[in-house]
Simulated assay, not measured.
Amino acid sequence: MKKSILIFSLLGQLVFAQDKINISKEEVKRIETELADDKMQGREIFTPGIELASAFIENEFTKIGLSHYQKLNNYRQEFEVKGKSANNVIGILPGKSKPNEFVVFSAHYDHLGLKTSGKDKVYNGANDDASGVTAVIALAQYFAALNQNERTIIFVAFTGEEVGGFGSKHFSKGINADDVVAMFNVEMIGTESKWGKNSAYITGFEKSDFGEILQKNLKGSNFSFNSDPYPDQQLFYRSDNARLAALGVPAHTISTSKMDSEENYHQLSDEVSTLDLDNMTEIIKSIAISSTSIVNGKDTPTRVEKL
């Protein structure tokens, strides 16, 4: 009898903790709506629209109070792609006791830009991947306010994912992969997964125990992480996690996108109105909870086999 009461009490505390995480739907909606606004012109690399998006993310990092990455004097990690200027946006929360061990939260902020004709010309990319960038900003807000990270957290919005992963490629070249403990790449979490609400999948689930750690930290909640249900699509190697994963980092992508039936994927119809913002908010909260033991230095995921 007493054991049953104790278990019930602990489960209740976990659910209560998830409810109390300071990540609100209102804030998620604000960030998401701004990133997917028509004025961003589809956030295509090398365009004024992506410059607006970069400036917005930089401003959010400034408000949060993130530190600058490496020797940068701002949040822009600039580089060239075929002779043209591009930039990632990076901010960090220095770790308390393990500052030289890094946990990365990432998403790409570029998208497809503008269609040349038609009434609706903007590829807003609300799900792909304004939803992921929204998660990164919301998680930065959360961890900065919590102020308990033992490991250094790197928050990065990559550019150039849609045209060849140039941002993540540049970032991976400039960091010692051995120092990166884990990478949470967030890609398209604005719609329900094939399992419905309160669920998502992790690409490359079997390649490390990253997913098992996340599931352990969510034990007692109503949220579940699952293995990638679309192995034939090779999603583990199709997003920004792939560059660091190739170097042995347990770098995985978290997504809910139904890749066999996502009707708005790379379409003009990928707009905020098509997203489930309530469910998206719960996903972001669950990422926060599930990453706790990694961020706090208690768990270290096994390495991925290098390519």
Results as ranks from 00 to 15, higher is better:
Met1Cys: 10
Lys2Thr: 12
Ser4Cys: 06
Leu11Glu: 03
Leu14His: 08
Gln18Val: 06
Asp19His: 12
Ser24Phe: 02
Ser24Val: 03
Glu26Tyr: 13
Ile31Arg: 03
Leu35Phe: 05
Leu35Arg: 05
Asp38Met: 05
Lys39Tyr: 08
Met40Arg: 11
Gly42Ser: 01
Arg43Asn: 00
Phe46Gln: 00
Pro48His: 00
Ala53Gln: 08
Ser54Tyr: 08
Ala55Lys: 13
Ile57Trp: 05
Glu58Ala: 14
Phe61Ser: 13
Leu66Cys: 05
Tyr69Pro: 02
Gln70Met: 10
Leu72Arg: 08
Asn73Ser: 13
Asn73Ala: 08
Gln77Val: 10
Gln77Asp: 15
Glu78Phe: 02
Glu80Ala: 13
Lys82Thr: 07
Ala86Trp: 11
Val89Thr: 14
Lys98Tyr: 14
Glu101Trp: 11
Tyr109Glu: 03
Gly113Tyr: 04
Leu114Arg: 03
Ser117Ala: 00
Lys119His: 01
Val122His: 00
Tyr123Asn: 06
Asn124His: 11
Asn127Lys: 03
Asp128Trp: 04
Asp129Met: 01
Ala130Glu: 07
Val136Lys: 07
Val136Thr: 06
Phe143Ser: 11
Ala145His: 12
Ala145Thr: 12
Leu146Cys: 04
Ile154Lys: 07
Ile154Pro: 07
Val156Tyr: 02
Ala157Val: 09
Ala157Cys: 08
Glu161Leu: 05
Gly164Lys: 14
Gly165Cys: 10
Phe171Glu: 05
Phe171Lys: 12
Lys173Asp: 04
Gly174Ser: 14
Asn176Ser: 13
Asn176Met: 10
Ala182Lys: 03
Ala182Gly: 06
Met183His: 08
Met188Ile: 10
Met188Phe: 01
Gly190Arg: 09
Gly190Tyr: 11
Gly190Lys: 10
Lys194Pro: 01
Lys194Ala: 07
Lys194Ser: 09
Gly196Phe: 06
Gly196Thr: 05
Lys197Asn: 05
Lys197Glu: 10
Asn198Cys: 10
Ser199Thr: 01
Ile202Val: 15
Gly204Phe: 01
Gly211Leu: 03
Ile213Trp: 14
Ile213Gly: 13
Lys216Ile: 00
Leu218Lys: 06
Ser224Gly: 01
Ser224Cys: 04
Ser227Tyr: 11
Ser227Gln: 14
Pro229Glu: 11
Tyr230Phe: 15
Phe236Trp: 07
Phe236Gln: 10
Leu244Ser: 01
Ala246Pro: 02
Leu247Ser: 00
Leu247Thr: 00
Gly248Asn: 02
Gly248Ala: 00
Pro250Met: 02
Pro250Ser: 07
His252Asn: 06
Ser257Pro: 05
Glu262Gly: 03
Tyr265Asn: 01
His266Leu: 00
Leu268Asn: 04
Glu271Gln: 15
Val272Lys: 13
Val272Trp: 09
Thr274Met: 14
Asp276Gln: 00
Asp276Trp: 04
Asp278Ser: 12
Asp278Leu: 06
Asp278Glu: 15
Met280Gln: 15
Met280Asp: 13
Thr281Cys: 14
Thr281Gln: 14
Glu282Ser: 15
Lys285Leu: 11
Lys285Gly: 01
Ile287Thr: 08
Ile287Ser: 09
Ile287Asp: 13
Ser291Tyr: 03
Thr292Gln: 14
Thr292Tyr: 12
Ile294Arg: 07
Val295Trp: 08
Asn296Met: 08
Thr300Tyr: 08
Leu307His: 06
Leu307Thr: 09
